[in-house]
Structure formats: structure tokens, C-alpha cells
Design a protein around this nucleic acid. Sequence first.
RNA 1: GCCCCCGUAGCUCAGACGGAUAGAGCCGGGGAUUCCUAAUCCCUGUGUGCCGCAGGUUCGACUCCUGUCGGGGGCACCA
Length: 560
Amino acid sequence: MYRRIEAIVRATLEACAAHGLIALGDVPRDLSIEKPKRKEHGDFATTTCLTLAKAARKNPRELAAGFLLHLQDPEGILDAAEIAGPGFVNFRVREPVWRESLKQVAILQTAYGRSHEGAGKRVLVEFVSANPTGPLHVGHGRGAVTGDAVASLLAAVGYSVDREYYINDVGNQMNILGRSLFVRYQQLCGKDVPFPENHYQGGYVLPIAEAFRAKVGDSHVDDDYETNRRFFTDFIKDDILKGIEKDLERLGVRFDRWFSERSLHDAGRLQKVVADLEAAGTITTDEAGRKVFRTTLFGDDEDRVVIRENGVPTYFAADIAYHQEKFERGYDLCIDVWGADHHGYIPRVKAAVQALGIDPGRLEILLYQFVSLVEGGEQVRMSTRTGQFETLEDLLEDVGEDATRCTFVMRKSDSQFEFDLSQARTQSEDHPVFYVQYGHARLCQVLEKAKREGHGVPTLDSVDLSVLVLEEELDLIKKALDYPFVVSSAASVRGPHHIVFYLQELIGLFHTYYSKYAHTEKVVSADLRKTAARLFLCDALRIVVSNALALLGVSAPERM
RNA sequence: GCCCCCGUAGCUCAGACGGAUAGAGCCGGGGAUUCCUAAUCCCUGUGUGCCGCAGGUUCGACUCCUGUCGGGGGCACCA
């Protein structure tokens, strides 16, 4: 519907230009069709007459009058178009057009809401990518849900999307982790060794040490850790990764690929990319013998070391190679979902991408702000190293998968929010997600009941929607028809939270409708024409809600 | 010191490109169920929401610019 209004406005503007009212060159590409907040202002409104007034050197209202004079509505979908306020033009779409349009939902079914804006483009969303040094905590949950929902949104608007987890399985943290295992293992074997400072103290290491001992016995107690490092790090890393995968699976997050940083090292990609950039002159060797990437050439604050004096590459070096590798795989767009603590890292990665000859616009960094946990008014500090954190698993256990996902996805990712754990646990049954799910269940049960009484959802040709004359019914139709637009705009701003708000509004309208007419104009009644039309409407609503929930990764129960 | 994000109702948050009277949910009070699910609905609440504050741009600013205050985060040869 939005598109049809846009077409009318554009055609009208062209007609205006033909009559010399405005210059065609002044017509913006984006016509700013909006939905008025107030119902009296009609179904759609445009502000183009206000914006064009200046260039046309005309009074906005006068221009709007000219606009109406040349109104192009060949399909005759408009009921009214009028000037309002300083120069708005409000449109009211004919009711039969609205009703008829509802058939789109039934025609498209699960494809309703999808579009082709991203058709032919491949995008890679890389997210979570938490170091495999401990279980996922609540903060990671936000990154996981955000990344997953954004990926789904992009897929819904036609992109071919892959989800990827980058495993930082190289470096000092791995080393410390391996030693944490080693020492715990030694302690289990009865050896009195102190637990080193700054190592992973979390309780989760103990069962891993036990499993390790169960597997290898006491034979490695006296190993020299340094020479046997890989043995320990691999064991604990694999174990932790398995746990991470399990938590994510439970959250409904599945990756197409788990990409190991080590594989980049093993394939010699770091050396290669460094050599290439050296040849290009963007990496130079300094007086101390370090190789430095001159990211300042691309707008970074300072140059960044990629190969240390001792020849060991930095994490950044791996990241350059990783991004190069990602783009080489043929993605048109790469989205990295990072916690806000990494924001300082953006300029150098952008610089790297640019130095590699890739348009930095093809790399998008989506930051999500931290979740600050509050328990009974007290701030809960989180640290993997000290083992103090609320795990994602516990949260899932306490509040459930759907509420957890919804909690994260209903907030704009770049706003910080306070998560009250005690409140989340005690009030989990009041969560907005259930409001929406209940609405879905209610729709299903109405359809179910109708079926039991011999009323199926009518076919497209047989249904007569003209009997849907109640104001609430038209409101519902309009809202349902808004869905594709909501999906596109949510996708373009990478903001899945818009879907949640939309769902609440849609379901709210339905609950109101349902309750208001529970005694008078029920869906299933003796009036067969009304019953058929209303079942058609309910089924359309069910489709919209179910599609939207699927997009968010939240289940759509048929009964509750 | 420099950089990034946030600041909207008592609380948690929306507010798409600058537009008409800035919205939800939660919380408090009252009511609705012989009838498609009451995990729902309806009414209502104290609060004149100085949209953190002060300027600026504009016909018009919660939205854009500058400054300022408050909160969070960053400023590694850690990942």
C-alpha cells in the first residue's frame, strides 16, 4: 500500500512539473510518505509540498493546492486527499481497497512480509565470537540474539545471509586457559600447587579438569606445561566451545560456520597479507624491528603493530587476514556485531579493509551496548577471569528461551539497559512476549473452534470481505498490511526491536477487538458471510504474527 | 586529556527522512468471565513529560550543529 501511495505522489509531482509548478530536479528520491499519528489525518500523508515549497518559491499550501489539482490516481484507490496544517497532504484510501489488499497475506503465506531489496547480494553476519575461555554470560546473550535477529531480518528482505562465529583460539588467553586446566588437573591428582594469579578461577574449569583426568589418568601430572601446551588448550577449548554451542542452540542461534583463527595462521594467511601490505607500503618495519600497519593513512589515530619484535603476530594481524578472507569468499557486505567495548577497534579494521582495496562501506560494525546486571538493587560485576558472572544458561533456565530472546531483541542494540535479575525471575510470566504469544494462540484457537464447527478458512475467490465493516476490523486490516513496510525499515536500520513493537500493537488491536465483540459480533456466528470473512481476517493475522515471531526467533504456540 | 554510545512519564523503553496534540509496557486504584482461551479487555491514577541543560540552524527540532552536565565504554606489542 505504501508503494502505491508513493507511486501516486510521484506521478502527481511529475504532472506538477509538467505544468511548471515545480522543477523536476527538486523532487527528492525519497518522497517521505508517512503514516500520520492521528487517525483523523488519514491513512497516509506526505510532506513533499512543504519541502518543495522553498525551491519552488511558493507558499506550501498553495503548492499543495496545485498538487491536488494534478493528482494522479489512475487506479482510483483514494477516497480523499486533502490539505492540512501548514501544507501536509493527507490521503485516505478507500475501504474496499484495504479489504481487497488483505488477500495478499493469504496469497503469500509465510512469504508475506518478505521482499527483494537485497536480492542477489550476499551478506555475512559475524557475531558472538566470544573467546572460548568460559561459558557465555548474559552479555553474550544480547550479542547472540541481536546478531541472529539482524541476520534473519536481512534474509527476510532478500539477502543471502550466512552466520559465522569467529573463534579466537590463538594467543595468550588460550595459553592462560590451558594452564588453568593444567593446574586444576594437578590439584585433582593430589599435587599441591598454587593456582596462579590472573588465571581462570571460574568453577567451570573444575569439571573440565575432572573430565580431563578421567580421560588421561594421572600420567600428565608432571608434564612440562609449556612443551605440551596445545594438548591442554585444545582439550579445554573444545569442551568450552561445546558448551557455548549448546547454549546458543538453546537460544535458537545456529551458525553456518565456526571459523577458527588458528586456521588462518595454519594456512599462512597472516604472513601473506602482511607481505602484500608491505609490498604496497602500508606496512613498514620500525627501528625496533616491529612491523607496523600505517592505519593513520586511513584515518586511524595511531599506527598499529601487526608483528611484534619477536616475530609473533598480534591479534590485529589475524583480524586483517580474517576480513580479507571473508570478502574473498564473495560477500557483498560483512556485518560484525561487537560489544561496545570494542568500538575503539573500528577505525583500524576499517582502515585495514580499505588498505586491502575493499570499499570500507561494505564492512559494517554493529555495536551493542553492555547489559548491566542488577540483583536486588545491587550491581553485579561480570568477569570471566575471576569467574564472576551470570551465565546465559542460568538465565535461560530462570526466564525461558522466548522471554530471554525477546528481552534482548526488544531494545535498540546501542542503548544500554539494566537487567534486573530478581525481577526477571519473579515476573517472567508478565513478560510482553507472552502477550503476543497469547494473541497468536487465541487466533489459532478461534480458527480451531471454527473448524470443529465446520467452518474452514474461506478461499480467496469465495470470500466476501465487504462485510468487514467494523472500525476495529479495518484497523486490523491496515495494521496487518503495514507489516512488510515494518520489516523493510527494521532491516534497513538493523533494528529488530521495531518488529517487537509492531507485534505488540497488532496483537493489542486484536485483543481489543476480540473482547469488545465477545458478546455481540463474534468471529464464529450464525452469519455465514461474516464468519467466513472474519475467519479470513483471523487467519491473515495469524500468518502475520507467526511470520514476525519466526523472524525474531520466538516460538508461536497454538495454545497456551 | 582525546574518542564513541546513551540521557524521553515513578520504572523499563519506542519515537523510521526534521513535521500536525511526543507514545507503549510496567507499577497504583476500580471494574468485566453462563457465551470463539481472563496469560485478555475496559475505565482510571499522581505526574502541566521545561524530551539532561544552554545556545544555534530552520517556516518548523526529541530528531541536525556547537558547547555543557550526568551515566557507560574505549584510548595495548590482550584477545
